[in-house]
Amino acid sequence: MNKRTLIGIVLVLLLACALPFAVSEYRNFQFTLVLIYSIALLGLNILTGFNGQISLGHGAFYAIGAYCAAILMEQAGLPYWATIPLAGALCLGAGFLFGLPALRLEGLYLALATFALGVSLPQLLKYHRLEEWTGGVQGIVITKPDAPEFLSGLNLALNQDQWLYFFTLAVAVLMFLLARNLLRGRIGRAMMAIRDNPIAAEAMGINISLVKSLTFGISAMFTGIAGALSAIAVQFVAPDSFNIFLSITFLIGIVIGGLASIPGALYGALFIQFVPNIADEISKAAPWAIFGLFLLGFTYLMPTGIAGAIRLGWVRLTRKAHHKPSRVTTILP
């Protein structure tokens, strides 16, 4: 990582820390959701962007994470923070197990299989035999956690929403750090190698089945953790909040944000959180038509996603500043 990127990240983090004190309570809640979505999108991007496995059903893992948190808090009486790693572990297992049979499927067929998962899970959650835990169609209402005591001792009185924002921010920073570590090393290269050329990847000694199914697990874990955070933030889970539209929205998020880009997950989260609202403000009658226009506009103007556009803009800017030659010359054998 170069110095400029580091400075950029520190600035964004400082801004993120100041945010809850500068905006309304409602906006604060929206930004909490942005952070949550960014974790979910990061998970999907690890799978689809970096490893080349399409998922049209990641909403299912988001739902599993959310229900896991809700049930553990409301029925087992666990503190909210303890549900996060447990939801992650559950989704890691669920994702790995789903990833195993999915190994046989590729491209559109994998898309169909994951779609089947995404479309069937909400119905399963309504199933009457499970009602005792899931609350059936009604769902589960969750109590909002308070900021920890010691903060007021430090003269840092945060209200519940502000605290939840910072808690989410901390989890998000941790998840982004883990993802970056994973993707920049041996395993990340193996994931991308499989995406680019599975035959050659295998010839280089990569155990494709293992890497792909573990990647599926890791991806589900990220998305499940996001789901758990969302349950705590929204204070409510119900089957219909996790319909197939959610899964599609995640896919839109990673494509618009930038496939195979870590910051792309954050850009995509901003998009899926705010653009529907903006569309709604522009036209109450046809918000989805407006949303569609935005979608077309973004894909047309930024074919490599927001992350790609930013990278390109940055390269042009710095090039102009340094008057560097733009083409790399290569030597022949």
Partner: peptide
């Protein structure tokens, strides 16, 4: 059969896969 979107250096580094061993957990 190269990894076309990856850099030259990364392609060659993937070639070392069978001589390296760190897994998901320690990498993360």
């Amino acid at each position: 059969a190269l990894f076309r979107t990856m850099s030259v250096l990364d392609n060659v580094m993937v070639g070392r896969h069978s001589h390296t061993s760190t897994g998901f957990f320690v990498n993360a």
